[in-house]
Design a protein around this nucleic acid. Structure first.
Lengths: 195, 195, 195, 195
DNA sequence: GATGAATGAGTATTCATTCAT
DNA sequence: CATGAATGAATACTCATTCAT
């Protein structure tokens, strides 16, 4: 924890975000991260035991931030359906404002066994559960049909946003603006599940 | 004679599907694919110039199959909304029946720059367009709201299915059966976009 | 011997001469020689047991030709000093007319242990001895100083011609014409050793 | 610190000289050079980008030494004809004292396109020019015939010495001693070109 | 803590050679 | 004899990780 406040630790995470985004985790060299961070190669191993750990730490850090921010924003809304709208807009804005991070999460983290399969992605589960909880709340308030299964609904909604994000990350020019996309996707979903 | 060549080409693709699925593209060794295919290491290089090309060929092959099959199935249905339901069910069934392939497409192919970014994924674009075309058809028949944008809708729907597929691929036990998931997801979407 | 008259054997030697000259023995691929010869890879191994053997055979063939030719030409001259002049001119002409062969002999055959060191180059020894014999004859006829050592003289003269040949092979444009070079080099030597 | 680097660089050059001389460049394994140098395989790649570069560096290093030494020695003599004698003796002595290096220069460096053809051998050109300059000087002083062409003479003389060197390198026992050979070869040449 | 030179395990790819047809 | 698909041994080079300073 003392480490996490450390200047060098932050520099490595920041440099790694850029380097991983550029060519992917496997093609990224530890020495390149060190160079980008303006430190020596060996210094990285004072803060991280393995190259893998940089990616995991990076993910945890970013996801914590995203999760905390999303929770805070969602709380400002009391109507579950409004919460869904806000979630969509905020999610896409986060992607837009953090292209490098988004690319890593989108592409690298889905990757090999080392991560999605063996690494239990607690923060991602919590992120999905934010949606699940909103759906549950909507059902309890009678705003969402009682036959909607939160476990399916949360993935469907997240998946829809995520696929748009992938498109975002991989395209240079955007055909649709964020607000439009957020509105459309949340409307499909809300209309699809509301009572 | 062509048979024999074809035979080995197929064996390599088949072996690679299993090997890539197990530990991912980067951790897969060419020698392991050869062993799995029951041929010599060097033989692989008669059919493929680089390790990369095996993954790309594999993807093209499988996607062609999936695309052809999906097109045929969709044509059997005349109602665009029914087409959406059928798409969902068939997509999830394909995933279920081709776990290894699904895992590769889900995880490996989204990966590094070499693929999603630089490799222009024509077949995937066509697959998405199948959905786009159905939406367009539905709009023209007055079954789908005129303000629905196919370019957003197709991604939202595919993303929803895809996120469920990911969950499927990464889980050992399935909480929900395919028919249920397909029904729910297509219902959200249909209710969300119908007139 | 029946083999040596064989059409395919000749084709291989001829193709190998071109292929070895282009990029050197080590970089030359057996399959490239086969392609150049218009035959299958495997056919080469009907005529030669190893890639090495092609180079050795090629050398033996060419050297026999060169040696026979040189012997015949030398015999036409009775004056040992004239023989030296003729040797120089003929040697350089051979190089000029057989660039590919010259390059191989110059460069490849001097090469690694496999050849100059382990392979006892009988034909080359005989070629050098042609010069040695001329010197000996000249000494006996009192035309060449009695203190000249043929074993040194033959190498000095051959080396002088050979270095010019190397220059020839490696240059694209020739500063001096063959007759001039042959005349100069034989004059240095003749003046240097004559009584 | 620079010392240490320098130290390993030297060790590699030295080890490579021995290893290349033994079996030739193409048969030499990088790992063998590393073992001979008492370092790890990877360390070689800190100092040299490619295996080729070791041979080139080795050559440049040795040639610089030889060239500097030869220049110094030649300057001690004022008579151009004496300079030629000294050149011959010194050249052969260098070969005798640096068998491994001589073998590499003699055999490996003449080799494939990578070297003699594509690699412009500046130091070798300068070495030859030392002889050319002596001839020019001799002509100006009226000691050497005015019709002698330095561009031909320098190659003839170098070639004569070089061919003796090759004989030297490839033989185990020497029939003639250095002084005799040097004296003979320089005498042929001097008598051959003097006024 | 910080450094960066050194390590050496790991692997894609090549290509001479074989042999079933 | 001829073929050319198949073989698999061989090796240059990379790069995550270590550790003496």
């Amino acid at each position: 924890m003392g480490q996490k406040n450390n200047n060098k630790y932050r520099k490595i995470i920041s440099a790694a975000t850029r380097v991983f985004a550029k060519n992917g985790f496997y093609k990224a060299k530890v020495s390149e991260i060190a160079k980008e961070a303006g430190i020596a190669d060996g210094t990285i191993y004072i803060y991280f035991k393995h190259k893998d750990d940089i990616l995991i730490a990076l993910f945890e850090e970013k996801m914590k931030e995203v999760l905390d921010n999303m929770k805070k924003q969602i709380r400002l809304e009391s109507d579950p359906l409004k919460k869904i709208q806000r979630f969509a807009l905020l999610h896409l804005k986060l992607i837009e404002d953090n292209k490098d991070m988004a690319e890593i999460i989108q592409i690298e983290l889905r990757q090999s066994s080392k991560f999605m399969k063996n690494y239990h992605n607690e923060k991602f589960v919590q992120y999905l559960d934010l949606i699940g909880d909103i759906i549950q709340e909507g059902k309890e308030k009678g705003l969402i049909r009682s036959d909607i299964i939160p476990g399916i609904g949360k993935r469907a909604f997240f998946g829809a946003l995520d696929e748009m994000s992938r498109f975002w990350v991989l395209s240079k020019r955007h055909k649709y603006d964020i607000e439009t996309v957020a509105k459309h996707i949340s409307n499909y979903f809300i209309n699809g599940i509301k009572s």
